[in-house]
Design a binder for these strands. Structure first.
Length: 482
RNA sequence: GCACCGUUCGUCUAGGGGUUAGGACACCGCUCUUUCACAGCGGUAACACGGGUUCAAUUCCCGUACGGUGUACCA
């Protein structure tokens, strides 16, 4: 039987980085086994619906390279893939459970349930639906239940959890998990608005969509026994489960926006490469057991396995992500990068943004920055003749060299007859230093300042080559002119 | 509170009954050097604790501690 996995987001907001990883692991597992990765929309909570959320999540996923074989936008033989479009199905299956005695009607109001919980908490016992004391099919009796139903009284359908029975399942990442039935709440399956809860919809859909492996976040682990009970109630074979560890804040709580960016789109706008983010996030909680640290999507597909997913949560290390992004910046094709950088440069109103030229600039400075967009600021003096103003420190450096103008004049005249190469420029600098009676080293910083208005940068002579002789001459002249 | 899950350098992790406990990020130092980087080299730094089992435990078992998640007519 071929592998079928699903990623099942709710349309409640932007795609979280943790969700990206969960989706990625699903995708990798499916592709590794030649199976299918399915997208299913879990929009059964109408109160939390956010317009456009699914489109945003799907496009964030696509940006990262995670795509689906079946789903609301791609189609497939197991649709519809949006739960609100499967509304009738859940009622049908819920009723099936009522009929076979594994689920029941309950008529409690929110207030009654609230009161029950406070009572339980005050008594120091775990909050849990009290089947024998609340208003339901069992306490009310058949006739009263029928009467209430007939007059359309607001009601829900609850799972009748088999008490005193161990529920067990084998998690692919954690091994066997056992929970006693008495610990499990009589979960609501169908809400009073007729919509299913996650628990029912999820089980019904996973079965109908022939999902073979449920790979989801660890936060679902405690409710998995409910799902197992549901599979038993339906008489269905449950899929295999794998609960992946959480992504954590530095304080080890579940990763949230309090400590930094958590939405995939934020990483995208900050300028992270999708390949770098994917590479990094894949390694948060999984590793192939080798020293390899750079993986293309194909590499990940080839080597991914659930057995090598860790059990413990992983603190999301932004610093290491930055490093990885820099590594991708160093290895990516400069012409691709030049095209990607173009809108940024154009946006800043720079004049020298011809693709070939920009590619050369990127090649020259990429190892000094972590983000592609940083190139725009780091080397502004290459893209524009509108130089940033000299800092007081810079002016001090220039003032400390009394023979600076002599050196500059010499250098300028040399430029007029020089070969257009870094090596010739180096010779020029030596000559200029000689003329100014200083060592070449002492001239370097002032020369860089005059030409770029920056104290740091890439190799000066290669930089001069890119600025071009004419522009350098102009800059020297305008400096001397004061 | 109760249930479940977890615990190797600061972080991500490899390993696994007998190892100088390995790698990466970060940090520190050195080399290179026209600056900043890169690169190269070197360094600091970890098996949560207590009991077992065993000739031997960081590794297996049981506790404890600590942490996380869950405990909704949310997913």
């Amino acid at each position: 039987m071929s592998v079928r996995v699903r990623f099942a987001p709710s349309p409640t907001g932007f795609l979280h980085i943790g969700s990206l990883r969960t989706a990625l692991y699903n995708y990798l597992f499916a592709k590794h086994h030649g199976g299918s990765c399915i997208l299913r929309i879990e929009d059964t909570d109408r109160t939390r619906f956010v317009e456009g959320a699914i489109e945003e999540q799907v496009s964030s996923l696509a940006w990262a390279g995670v795509t689906f074989d079946e789903g609301p936008h791609t189609g497939g033989n197991h649709g519809p893939y949006t739960q609100s479009e499967r509304f009738d199905l859940y009622r049908e299956y819920g009723m099936q459970l009522v009929q076979n005695g594994t689920a029941y009607y309950a008529f409690d109001t929110a207030d009654e349930l609230g009161a029950m919980r406070t009572r339980q908490q005050n008594a120091g016992i775990a909050p849990k639906y009290d089947r024998s004391a609340m208003r339901n099919q069992f306490t009310l009796g058949e006739l009263e239940t029928a009467r209430l139903l007939a007059e359309n009284a607001s009601h829900v359908i609850r799972l009748k959890v088999p008490l005193q029975q161990d529920i067990r399942f084998n998690d692919l990442i954690r091994g066997e998990v056992v929970v006693n039935g008495r610990e499990i709440d009589d979960q609501i399956l169908l809400k009073s608005d007729g919509f299913p809860t996650y628990h029912l919809a999820n089980v019904v859909d996973d079965h109908l969509m022939e999902i073979t492996h449920v790979i989801r976040a660890e936060e679902w682990l405690p409710s998995t026994p409910k799902h197992i009970i549901l599979y038993q109630a339906f008489g269905w074979e449950p899929p295999k489960f794998a609960h992946v560890p959480l992504l954590l804040n530095p304080d080890r709580s579940k990763m949230s926006k309090r400590h930094g960016d958590v939405m995939v789109k934020d990483f995208a706008t900050k300028g992270f490469f999708p390949e770098a983010l994917v590479n990094f996030v894949a390694l948060c909680g999984w590793n192939p057991g080798t020293d390899q640290e750079f993986f293309s999507m194909q590499d990940l597909i080839d080597s991914f396995s659930l057995e090598r997913v860790n059990k413990a949560g992983a603190v999301f290390d932004y610093q290491k992500l930055n490093w990885m992004n820099g590594e991708y910046l160093k290895k990516r094709n400069v012409h691709d990068l030049a095209r990607e950088l173009h809108p940024v440069l154009a946006g800043k109103g720079y004049q020298y943004i011809d693709e070939e030229f920009v590619a050369n600039v990127i090649e020259l400075v990429r190892e000094r920055v972590a983000f592609l967009a940083d190139v725009a600021d780091f080397a502004d003096y290459l893209f524009s003749d509108n130089l940033s103003s000299l800092t007081p420190e810079a002016q001090e450096v220039l003032a400390k060299l009394p023979t600076l103008n002599t050196a500059l004049e010499t250098f300028k005249h040399g430029l007029g007859t020089s070969l257009d190469s870094p090596e010739s420029f180096k010779g020029l600098a030596q000559a200029a230093a000689d003329a100014a009676c200083v060592k070449q080293g002492a001239l370097m910083k002032p020369l860089r300042l005059v030409l770029t208005h920056r104290e740091v940068g890439a190799d000066l002579f290669s930089t001069i080559k890119l600025i071009g002789i004419d522009r350098c001459v102009q800059r020297i002249e305008s400096f001397i002119a004061g």
